[in-house]
Write a protein that binds this DNA or RNA. Structure first.
Lengths: 343, 343
DNA sequence: CTTGGCACTCTAGGCTTAAGAGTGCCAAGC
DNA sequence: GCTTGGCACTCTTAAGCCTAGAGTGCCAAG
């Protein structure tokens, strides 16, 4: 459907939202009359504002205040009225440099989150990138004290994971070396999920043919591969949110912070953006989570080699400078993708 | 020196502080007259309160409010007037169970921090335990892609550390295995600092006598051992602090949260407790850090095998229930020590 | 369709007032 | 000499009142 709004109404809505975002004060007809560029008297403007209110795009906090945007008002503004402020290339260069100085992957994610929060002066959030395909490069066993074995997985040539597993008997270093060699020769270079399937298959099929050590090696490997990658995100600048009187009462804010700590809700919300290309915006109650009622979230997915692997974004008050935040999130996502892909 | 306070003044100060901690309201002479158990009229009490004010233990927020304790007042209260509320053994058992369910060391520290914050409804903090003596159990090398080697250190039979180092040439798996075997046979079971010293010594002494691989092994090991353990702490329940109107303005609170994120100041403060036996308490400005002006911190060191390895504590408003918090911190420190020692 | 005029409504802030709490001091009493 | 009731005084808090100002909706004229 097209908007039931004529050009003039759209322009006025745009002016109103921009003005409100700038000043944080309800906007009245007089201000809008001067501000909009149209040469209309306040009375005329009032008529239009009345229509806009009927359609649910703006509302008056009380009789004699101006109007402020509703969630639907912001929505229209963001979807079809917004003029985005592109970033200067100088700034972009600066940001690129900041991300470039990160060494490990975790540092990179943290740097990105910091970057988002410091530029926008709101809260920045970046999910830990998923591994799209996880190739096993190498597996090693180290025997610890009795009945405990340390398993080291080298994945994708970059990442290292290790965990300790408990076994039924104590293995000698020889046995473990033997097992590792076998697994490496058999499975190195393959995908973890594939390996897992094959392991299961051969364990059932050929139970009797295998030596004891080999059997154990397989069950060890199976234990190790049997856990899903848990999702997580890194948050920066949450204290920035304490500067916004918008989220008036401390109690709301506390609930929000608790949600950051719990992580579940936020993760679910971010997950929704992972499938969508480009910038995604949740305004106020749109997110569906009560704690975020007075917040907006601007997100973008980011990629490695054209595969989406994570989401980043900014969380702030509904009344935020979308024209600035959107390009920031967009550019940051691109920069992060570039860094991850070039590695 | 002995207190310049007679018994009656002490009793009244005690009553006043207890009452103020309970209600959060300035305490007047009438209340104290009923509350203290002494059979004295408000007028008499007023005289004593006047003395207490002159000595700097209490003060009146304004002419016609009651009195509230000053930092020095709290100090006297905590040092010599307090009657501590011991915990029920049932509770202690419960706490022990909570800590017992943690698997890794990090989980244990987090559980402890959670425990402190959930019982006290304030913020809990636990430093990551220092390793007092670090025995090398095993060292392993895994060659990654070109010129990068993954080094795995197994320490104290429990801990595993790994890091990636960059080398000048690419080593074969054979070479690395050889090097690891050498280092293990030479140094397994020794302390890291000792190993480091010996490595340095033999590298200078016998440079020419050693094979190339051996030299590299040593320099690899040297690179790995050459980093100090960085201090850190785990914080839980910081949002609990948002419930205290005491730290009235959001701005103070924000500064405090920022200090939690920066970690430096808090770490320095906690460090001061690591040398002191038993419970340590910083009240208000005593801590020396402006952000903590309206907070008190109750800490205790904790041990592994009688060696102090860390500090834990609780951070809350100056007006906290010391009689409850002190035993909680004390018991938690003992429990944590016990769990760490028994491992 | 636009506009000036106008009555109306509602808020924010300033001012006043009254109630209440608590004090310090004094003089009387044990 | 300590204790106590009495009393004048101070200061805060909340309520009530009032006014200025902002903004509205509607209407009738252009």
């Amino acid at each position: 459907m097209t908007h039931p709004l004529n050009d003039r109404a759209q322009l006025l809505l745009k002016s109103l939202v921009e003005r409100y975002i700038r000043d944080g004060q309800p906007v009245g007809s007089r201000i809008l009359s001067k501000d909009s560029g149209l040469n209309l008297s306040p009375a005329t403007i009032r008529n239009v504002m009345c229509d806009l209110e009927d359609m649910g795009f703006i509302r008056a906090p009380h009789t004699s205040a101006g109007r402020i945007p509703t969630v639907q008002g912001y929505r229209v503004f963001v979807d079809s009225l917004l003029t985005v402020k592109p970033l200067h290339s100088k700034e972009v260069e600066q940001y690129r440099a900041k991300l470039g100085s990160a060494v490990t992957k975790v540092e990179l994610v943290e740097a990105t989150s910091d970057l988002l929060s410091s530029i926008t002066r709101m809260a920045g959030v970046v999910t830990i990138p998923r591994r799209k395909q996880t190739l096993l490069r190498q597996i090693e066993f180290v025997s610890l004290s009795d009945k405990r074995v340390l398993v080291i997985l080298v994945l994708n040539d970059q990442e290292v994971q290790n965990r300790v597993i408990h076994t039924e008997k104590t293995f000698s270093a020889q046995e473990l070396l033997y097992a590792a060699n076998f697994l490496n020769s058999e499975f190195a270079g393959m995908e973890l999920t594939t390996i897992r399937q094959r392991l299961l298959a051969s364990m059932q099929q050929a139970r009797n043919d295998m030596g004891e050590v080999m059997q154990t090696a397989m069950s060890l490997a199976d234990q190790v591969l049997d856990d899903k990658q848990q999702e997580d995100f890194v948050l920066a600048g949450q204290t920035n949110l304490m500067n916004f009187a918008d989220m008036a009462n401390i109690d709301k804010l506390r609930q929000l912070f608790d949600a950051f700590n719990t992580k579940n809700d936020i993760l679910h919300l971010l997950d929704q953006s992972i499938s969508a290309e480009g910038i995604q915006i949740f305004i106020g109650e749109e997110s569906g989570y009560r704690v975020l009622d007075e917040c907006s979230i601007v997100t973008s997915s980011y990629k490695v080699n054209d595969d989406v692997v994570g989401v980043l974004g900014v969380i702030g008050p509904t009344r935020m400078a979308y024209d600035r935040v959107i390009p920031i999130v967009d550019v940051t996502a691109r920069l992060l993708s570039a860094v991850l892909t070039s590695e």
